[in-house]
Design a protein around this nucleic acid. Sequence first.
DNA 1: CAGTACTTTAGAATCATTATAAATTACATC
DNA 2: GATGTAATTTATAATGATTCTAAAGTACTG
Lengths: 138, 138
Amino acid sequence: MNNNRDFIEKLRSSGLRPTKQRLEICKLLFDRKKTFHFTISDLSKILKKETIKKISLATIYNTVHSFKKKGYLKEISIDTEKTYFDTNTSNHHHFLDISTNELIDLKEDDVDNIKIKKNLPGKKIRSIEVLVKIENNN
Amino acid sequence: MNNNRDFIEKLRSSGLRPTKQRLEICKLLFDRKKTFHFTISDLSKILKKETIKKISLATIYNTVHSFKKKGYLKEISIDTEKTYFDTNTSNHHHFLDISTNELIDLKEDDVDNIKIKKNLPGKKIRSIEVLVKIENNN
DNA sequence: CAGTACTTTAGAATCATTATAAATTACATC
DNA sequence: GATGTAATTTATAATGATTCTAAAGTACTG
């Protein structure tokens, strides 16, 4: 569990001023045990409920984008309708539960090493991402 | 290579009237040897160039969506900025070349069988999609 | 504490997509 | 072929998410 002091340090060390808006958002995003997957709209709703002073929508967008640029968040494309962000910035895979629309992290170990047999000359692999769509079993 | 007659049949058989707009779009999308990946904007530009009579943007959206609903096109999420459609509707994987932003199909054989070790009770796997990001090798 | 650059903010602007409603077209029936 | 009807196309308006703007507020340096 992080406390405010840690977040202040984290922000300062990457050149972001630790404003109260950014700290609120840090607390919400990073002070958890499990990976958090969210859309801007999710985040906005939670902040509205959990925060005393309103944080403007523009600030939420600004903050999420600067956190992404600093490498604290990863943007993921699993749905053309929604833009998700992921607090787990490591290279990893996902389950997408079509029945509930829930996104679940897969650990490295959960997926066998993937071998790509095709090879394009002059190109190298930067990353491999797997999306496993799952649904109710009936 | 398909000809107009084939497209008329194809459309009729799925309950879509073979209008000249739909036939133009069929010809453009399906009369090719290689898979075609496109955005609505791409399609719109090509149609503007290659077609005598203007096809309205609304019609392009309508047509692509009905083709998707009929299973002639697949929507793919590889980029949060753009919505791509794919004329290859089979379950398959992709290379995304970050240097050129080009999307390339991987055949089944190009990727070794993927084993997912994690198993969620009550859920079954519907599909597995792999996105391999590649870049210039220097 | 003063100055400056960084942030936040509300609201306007933009862009892709979808909705609307009128005009056109495809097609079944005569 | 002509006619009626439902499907389709179209221009335009509406929507909704995101980005821009420029003014007010804040963090931080010296």
